[in-house]
């Protein structure tokens, strides 16, 4: 069995499975992030509850890290094998009849996402919320303040939005590709799945991007921070 799982078709299925797991995580993460629109208490409570899960949280974290490493390392292997398979390049490149910008940029969008995940972990997971980074107008807001101050930096915000669109690009092909890789092909359902992967990609890209946009608007228009009693 090991021999077969570790052949081109099996590896591709592991890539698809780990990718799908990360999409699931991403959607959960997005839903959590939306709590920022409800103000500091909502999102800080959510973060507190997540952290108080203790061992369950660590199981999820290790699982996610394993999926991430599996996806990334197997893709590198596949890229090498696939590159090697073409012996010499065509003088007139093969017409890109069915290749879209999304499929052609999979490895580049993936690389950008890889870099961003490291940056994101360093900036948020490994950086505690302190009075140096989480204070808005003299009040300490914890995670909310941390995120708020982070996105006031335009370079960080732009890098974030670009990466979220890279994720969207990655998912347009990635999500629907999973079904083909696992052998699901249906005259009626496959076109619906292709449309659904577009919808997921757009929701993820726009959903995450809405947070830096909201923070910048919030600050620019001088809205008050909503603290429910």
């Amino acid at each position: 069995m090991k021999k077969f799982i570790l052949s081109l078709v099996g590896i591709k299925q592991l890539v698809a499975l780990s990718g799908l797991a990360m999409v699931g995580f991403l959607i959960a993460h997005l839903l959590g992030n939306f709590l920022i629109f409800s103000g500091p208490i909502a999102i800080n409570n959510y973060a507190y509850k997540l952290h108080s899960l203790g061992p369950v949280l660590w199981v999820a974290r290790i699982g996610l890290l394993a999926m991430f490493l599996l996806h990334f390392s197997l893709v590198i292997y596949l890229v090498i094998v696939n590159k090697r398979a073409r012996n010499g390049s065509y003088a007139v490149p093969i017409h890109k009849k069915t290749r879209s910008i999304f499929t052609q940029t999979m490895r580049y969008s993936g690389l950008l996402i890889f870099i961003y995940i490291i940056v994101h972990l360093l900036d948020f997971t490994f950086t505690p919320h302190t009075v140096d980074n989480s204070v808005i107008d003299g009040v300490y807001y914890g995670l909310y303040g941390h995120v708020y101050n982070y996105f006031l930096n335009p370079i960080r915000s732009i890098f974030y939005i670009v990466t979220m669109f890279a994720i969207g690009f990655h998912l347009v092909h990635g999500v629907q590709s999973v079904l083909q890789t696992f052998g699901f092909y249906h005259k009626l359902y496959t076109p619906i799945i292709v449309k659904s992967s577009w919808i997921i990609a757009v929701i993820v890209a726009l959903g995450f991007s809405s947070i830096p946009v909201y923070v910048c608007l919030h600050n620019y228009l001088g809205w008050e921070i909503y603290v429910a009693t």
């Binding site: 591709k12 596949l78 094998v81 696939n82 590159k83 009849k97 069915t98 890789t181």
Partner: peptide, 13 residues
Amino acid sequence: GFGGCSNEYQCEV
């Protein structure tokens, strides 16, 4: 020494 499938469907056309 063939490559793997990346679901781009260039083959079909």
